[in-house]
Each structure stands twice: as C-alpha cells, then as structure tokens.
C-alpha cells in the first residue's frame, strides 16, 4: 500500500468508527475512550520499540505524570476545566517530554536488557512518589477529578468526551506516521538495524534515540490527560509495573513497527479486560493465553499475519529455508539490535 492509500484507509476507518460510536451504549463508549487514550501510550511505546529498537518497561511514568498533573491542577487550582484545558494539554505534553528528557539521560547510557531494567527502575520511581508522597498525590487513594472540562460544550457526557479523545488519537497517529516516514524516522530505523554503521555514516545515534525517547514521553503525557478525564480519577494503580508491561505487550500483540498494531493491541486488551471480564471470571486466562500464543507463534503480531500467510503460500523449499517463522525474532526487526548488544 502506498502512503496515500494508507492515510485514506486510516481516515475512513476512524470516520466509520466515529459514526458507529454514536450508537454505542454508555458502557461501550467508555471502554472505547479508555482504549483510545491508552492506545496513544501504546503507540509511543511502538515509536521506541518498533522503530528505534528500545524496549521500555517504564512507559507508565509518562502517563502518570500527565494524569497527576491534570488531577492536581484541577483539584487544587480549579485549573484546566474550561478553555484552559488546552493549556493543560500543552503542559502535560511538556511535563512528559521533560521527564523523558531527564530519564533519557540515564536510560540511553544503556542498551538491550539493561535498558529494560533502567526504564523499569525509573517507572518505579514515579510510582513510588505517587504512592507515598501523600500530600501531593493523595497516596494510595489517588485523586478524584471534580469533573470533565467544559469549553463551549460540556464533555461530561461519555459520548461527547469520546470524540475529543478520538480527535487527539487521530492527531497522534498522524503525527507519528509523518514522523516515522520522515528522514528522521528512517534514521531511527537505521539505528535500530545497525547502530554502529549509522554512527560511522556520521549520524548522531544517541541524539536520534534521545529525541525519539522525549517525543514518546510527551505523547505519554498527553495520554495521561485523556486517561484521567476518561476515568475521573487517578491512583498509583495506574502507574504500576503491569501498566508498562501491558503497553509493551499491546505493541507486540498488534505488531511492532506498524503504529496501527499498537492500536489493535490496545483494543483487544481493553476488550478482554473491560468487557470480557464482566462476562466470565476467567478472562485473564484469555489475556495471558493471547500474549503467550502471540509471542510463541506470531512474532510479527496480528498485523504480521497477512505477511505470514503470503510466506506460507511460497514454495515449500523456500519456506523451509526460513527455518520456521515462529523462530524469527519479534516484529522481525526489533530484536537483532537487542540481541547483538548481549
């Protein structure tokens, strides 16, 4: 598919989604809103994992800083519930980016498995502050929001708020799409594939990774604002390690390095967690099972299925040469860089 068609397909899908959502019940609409807000975080993880080759286990930190900033401004200063909501959006993006700029200085000194560990530690730092710094964050109980913003129209209704989140989601997707197709994005992929070679060619690999890390942080901050307004509250539970693990798993489930894969991943996880969990008590087996099966049998994720099918259609001799695609590394490009570092 060429880029024009891709954008057209994505735009049609989002438009169709917007129309269909109009008829969704209040339960479904909230589920979709939460999934879309989280999908922004998942896409930011994909920018790092799928395009830059950095597997972060601490992305919840940026969601957290955006969410807590929004909640603290709203509850303490009554700020961000009118037109100044847009200022909160800007502030949260800046706060997420600033936190990533700080954390990136530490995290990007490492690579591979140590990068996983250092991002885990940094994520836990933010969780620890949210959990124990009671007077600022409300500790264990978190912060309840006084309500959703109202400017021109009120976003108190879940249906109306959904469209706001959908708008931000579409904008983030477009921005990331433009970014990964830009020369900068291509350099990121080059660094993912062969960092040493890119350095020899004169690229500042560290700076490229750092900028990607900061952009991902800013997107996380944005996701946090939308997340806290969707739920009406924020607590340390939103920032736990499993949130970061979830974001990473969503990307891999959908297919790393595709952006839309992260969105599918988020959709499936929220469907299982928010909807299936109301029907059956064993929903977590489904989620865990989907994760395990994807990692074992679908290294390219769901968006890699068409490619897998095409490959199966090739002559068997060729297929055999590939030595079983299940053994190919995740997202076909992600891991060589990680493996090489070890």
């Amino acid at each position: 598919m060429n880029s024009g068609r891709r954008v057209a397909v994505a735009a049609t899908a989002i438009l169709a989604f917007a129309i269909l959502a109009h008829f969704a019940n209040s339960f479904t609409i909230l589920l979709l809103t939460r999934a879309l807000a989280f999908a922004i975080l998942a896409m930011s993880v994909d920018l790092l994992l799928g395009f830059t080759g950095l597997a972060s286990l601490g992305q919840a930190a940026y969601l957290g800083i955006g969410a807590y900033l929004t909640a603290i401004l709203a509850t303490r200063f009554g700020f961000g519930l009118g037109w100044d909501f847009w200022l909160v959006i800007v502030l949260a993006i800046l706060a997420g980016a600033a936190l990533a700029a700080l954390f990136g200085l530490l995290a990007l000194r490492t690579s591979g498995v140590y990068f996983l560990m250092v991002t885990l530690a940094l994520g836990q730092c933010v969780w620890g502050l949210a959990y124990r710094w009671d007077w600022l964050t409300g500790g264990d109980n978190g912060i309840n929001m006084p309500g959703r913003p109202k400017f021109g129209i009120s976003f108190a209704s879940d249906h109306v708020y959904f469209y706001l989140v959908l708008g931000f989601f579409a904008l983030s997707l477009l921005l990331l799409y433009v970014l990964v197709r830009s020369p900068f994005g291509k350099s990121l992929e080059g660094i993912r594939e062969r960092e040493a070679r890119m350095r020899i060619l004169g690229y500042n690999a560290w700076l490229h990774k750092y900028i990607a890390f900061v952009i991902a942080g800013g997107l996380g901050g944005l996701a946090g604002v939308l997340w806290v307004h969707a739920n009406g509250e924020v607590s340390p539970d939103d920032l736990v390690l499993t949130t970061s693990v979830d974001a990473l798993l969503m990307v891999v489930l959908g297919g790393a390095g595709t952006l839309v894969g992260a969105v599918f991943g988020a959709g499936i996880v929220f469907f299982v967690r928010d909807y299936l969990s109301t029907l059956v008590p064993w929903w977590q087996y489904v989620l865990g099972g989907v994760y395990v099966l994807t990692i074992l049998y679908l290294p390219g994720g769901l968006t890699g299925i068409p490619q897998r099918l095409r490959r199966v259609g090739l002559s068997s001799s060729k297929a055999q040469k590939r030595e079983g695609a299940a053994d190919a590394p995740l997202g076909k490009q992600v891991s060589p860089s990680i493996r090489r570092e070890l």
Partner: peptide, 9 residues
C-alpha cells in the same frame, strides 16, 4: 535467545 520475547513470555 531473543531477550524481548523471553521477557514478554
């Protein structure tokens, strides 16, 4: 020996 797949598994 794929680190990421091991972690996620």
């Amino acid at each position: 020996f794929d680190v990421l797949r091991q972690v996620l598994l």
